[in-house]
Design a binder for these strands. Structure first.
Lengths: 214, 214
DNA sequence: CCCCCATTCAAACGATCGTTTCAATCGTAC
DNA sequence: GTACGATTGAAACGATCGTTTGAATGGGGG
């Protein structure tokens, strides 16, 4: 019979790991589950990625690269305009990226979003640092743009709210916001864009709030 | 020598599990680590709680009971007042509970907060359902009070923002918001109350925002 | 043709997992 | 004191974990 897996073993491993890590988390996903799903051998993981953590690193890196690129592209677009970017524009550019990734690449894209949301809330400090290193380049740019749009807000206040935005988006992307109580998940893209808009509305208002009195 | 563990084995297991689950997550914490920390035998877990998941259930239940009680007490206090509770009062009552638990019982309280934050973002659906069942009684009361304070907002919009509040608080309590980039953690109670106030400010503004256009 | 090197494979490694067994131990009521 | 139910202890269960080994495979360049 023909090869049922046209993609290379390395790519199939990345795809399978991306989906399974997003679904069950890193610790609860065994390498054997990954390799069986990918139609590969257990040893292939250590051959291509060195270790289980190396596989995670590669998965996160691949997913993060596209997201980071999209975020920076949108930010550059806003800056190229003649007006200074508003808070809402900045928030929307940041939040919509997740949804756009989903829509662009279908099921695979949803896994990417869920994976990144999941990795951020992983307990293992090493994994958290991995995620932090990946978002660092984008963070600097957005913090600066947000600070410019909110000159009356102290920098640490802006940073706190930025982290809240990242975190809330991560929860949304990992479906943690929706299915605490099962039974009202719409699963459609209509709800996706609506909820994205809800997030933008909430976060924009949160950013615009005056600094809390100390 | 005297007994170095005055508390009962059952309580010591709960304490140890609470701290370790909060620190490393459920899947990454072994029963042997728990029992060694508690100064107990491995079999004691299955004797007192039936299984590892039974231990988690007991830990979450103990932690959630006190938090739920405090939340409902504060809500009742607001309702007993002559004025209708404002959005800010409701948000503060909800958010401050986490911090108050921490301050009341010291290190132990911090573990409680981290545990609940961690459980909410656990990948395992069974664990998530466990958390969902625990917060359900409080959720109904708060949703109703928030809806009364925000009559112009559609109910599903209120529910979405409520879930965002729960999620954001969970991230804050599990230290996920702070140490994405290590090195700026103050660890003191001063920062705790300040960041609590920041959350209240943000969330209040987020609730007050007009509904997103559809 | 043959060698070579990258890749894949089955198999096994030692370690650790959650769980179970059963004897030892304890306090307590009779 | 003795019997009894509750609790604890050491040890082992089978399963699964991440990782390693060493041989088989297969295509491309000499």
């Amino acid at each position: 019979m023909n090869d049922p897996h046209p993609r290379s073993t390395r790519e199939r491993l990345l795809d399978a790991a991306e989906r399974l890590f997003a679904e069950h988390g890193f610790a609860a996903t065994s390498l054997r589950t990954v390799t069986v799903t990918a139609g590969a051998n257990v040893a292939a993981v250590n051959y291509h990625f060195g270790s289980k953590e190396g596989l995670l690193r590669a998965v996160v890196d691949r997913a993060m690269t596209s997201v980071n690129g999209e975020r920076l592209r949108l930010l550059e677009e806003l800056r190229a305009s003649d007006r200074k970017p508003t808070v809402e524009q900045l928030v929307r550019a940041f939040v919509v990226t997740g949804a756009s990734i989903v829509e662009r690449s279908g099921t695979h894209g949803r896994d990417v979003a869920r994976l990144l949301g999941r990795v951020m809330v992983e307990p293992d400090p090493a994994i958290r640092r991995l995620f932090g290193a990946e978002v660092a380049p984008v963070e600097g740019q957005y913090l600066q743009a947000l600070q410019t749009a909110l000159p009356q807000l102290p920098p640490n206040e802006v940073a706190f709210r930025y982290r809240a935005m990242v975190g809330l988006l991560a929860l949304y992307q990992s479906d943690t916001l929706g299915d605490l109580h099962p039974g009202h998940r719409t699963e459609g893209d209509i709800a996706t864009t609506q909820e994205t808009e809800r997030l933008v509305t909430m976060l924009t208002a949160a950013f615009r709030a005056p600094a809390a009195a100390t």
